[in-house]
Design a protein around this nucleic acid. Structure first.
Lengths: 234, 234
DNA sequence: CGGTGTCTTGATTCTCATCAATTACTGTGG
DNA sequence: CCACAGTAATTGATGAGAATCAAGACACCG
């Protein structure tokens, strides 16, 4: 089974965007589609990377393991997004770990095919540059977040990020994460994340039933991590 | 005064690399060269960005201010490097602050000129993509560093980074930073950074006279953070 | 020489990681 | 359908490490 880019509905996907370009024919033929069960690693830390992935559906987490194997989740990827930034260049070891968090479908391209595509369709290269600069912006912000915020603020920041990224339905945030995953993205421990979540529940800033978390008033929660900025101006 | 790319000796500069391409003529003409005194901000947080900069000589720091105005230095830039990643796209507010730390010369290009260049010379776009992916890798590693390392490890990591990036002469690391700048990059306070530096001095892991810091045995210092195999590249 | 800014050290406070123990939840096989 | 095992979530207690506060030393500059 192979996903057809022309009929794909991920309008944010860059391959899809340029798929009607006649020069894209070759790369579309070289495409592979992979099915991944929940929890499957499709990029392993330390192993050489031979290409890069686009999420067709599902969700995944991109992480790095640090001291004593403690995991740091760098970001989550939703449909249409790229995973494995280094995979389009020369073969290199890229020290990240990418793992699906629900059953997912991935589209994969080899480095060579992609390089050729980028060099023949400069508009695609340009769009990819924009995507990268956006990513850089996001990650740079994360450095500051992790370095300066309190645990409470970091967890709130994470909840808002998940909400923005994966949206919600009437039951809560669509993507269900374990407390440990929330902690690993926030840059704290599982216990601390739990404590913050418990507090937020008591304060009615969130509604949580087991793993399902709902944010009744996003703006109100947002205020919790912005109040400090206003304090400066006052 | 305008620096001539063809005779520029920053072999790592991407503009220089493609400057002999006939299609580069236009962008080279549109180039501006700017002199900045030490401490001068050339990208201000919140202000719109109209282009991007290449360091011709000198050094600069790229930061974001966070809570209570506390500064988080994201990276340092050395000659040949690009500053202002978002400046090649549409006009956007890019919330970073870029400031020289010694007298520096900068080359600047407008978004439009650069966009045109990238679209006509796909090899340049491809090289820029490689640069961006490298940056992403570096910043992603920094997220983990800041989140998981102890203050001592973070400061050591910073010293090694500065050493790699700016090298040293017989007196010590070429680039002289204040303790506050070391702290702001490490993600800690000035006092804590000073304490670590003092300890390292006592342990003979570094030699320091005032602001000049020397690392007699890089490998030895590296061992201190050994459990984190993956360090930031220069 | 006074003054300003950086650097340094000590004392105190407080946040957070860690350890430990308990409780809920999930799925599986009898 | 229940018992069980295994996993995830939760709460409490404690100690370590780091931020903060405060005060003094040092260097550099007009």
């Amino acid at each position: 089974m192979k996903v057809d880019c022309l009929s794909c509905e991920n309008t944010n996907c860059l391959i899809k965007k340029h798929s009607s370009n006649p020069k894209a024919k070759k790369i579309l033929e070289a495409k592979h589609t992979i099915l991944c069960k929940k929890g499957q690693s499709f990029i392993m830390e330390g192993a050489p990377v031979h290409g890069l992935f686009f999420m067709y559906n599902g969700a995944s987490k991109i992480s790095r393991s640090g001291q004593y194997g403690k995991e740091q989740i760098i970001r989550f990827a939703s449909p249409g997004e790229i995973v494995g930034h280094r995979g389009f260049g020369v073969n290199e070891n890229y020290h990240i770990n990418a793992q699906t968090i629900v059953d997912s479908t991935l589209c994969s391209f080899s480095s060579e095919a992609l390089k050729e595509f980028l060099l023949t369709v400069p508009e695609m290269a340009y769009d990819l540059l924009l995507f990268f600069s956006e990513q850089l912006n996001t990650v740079e912000t994360k450095v500051r977040t992790v370095a300066q915020m309190s645990v409470r603020e970091k967890v709130i920041d994470t909840l808002l990020y998940i909400q923005r990224k994966f949206g919600n339905d009437d039951v809560g945030i669509k993507l269900i994460l374990s407390r440990k995953e929330i902690a690993d993205f926030s840059g704290t421990t599982e216990e601390q994340a739990i404590r913050v979540i418990s507090s937020l529940k008591k304060e009615k800033l969130i509604v949580a039933q087991g793993k399902r978390i709902q944010i009744p008033d996003v703006a109100l929660l947002q205020k919790e991590i912005e109040s400090h900025h206003f304090y400066l101006d006052a």
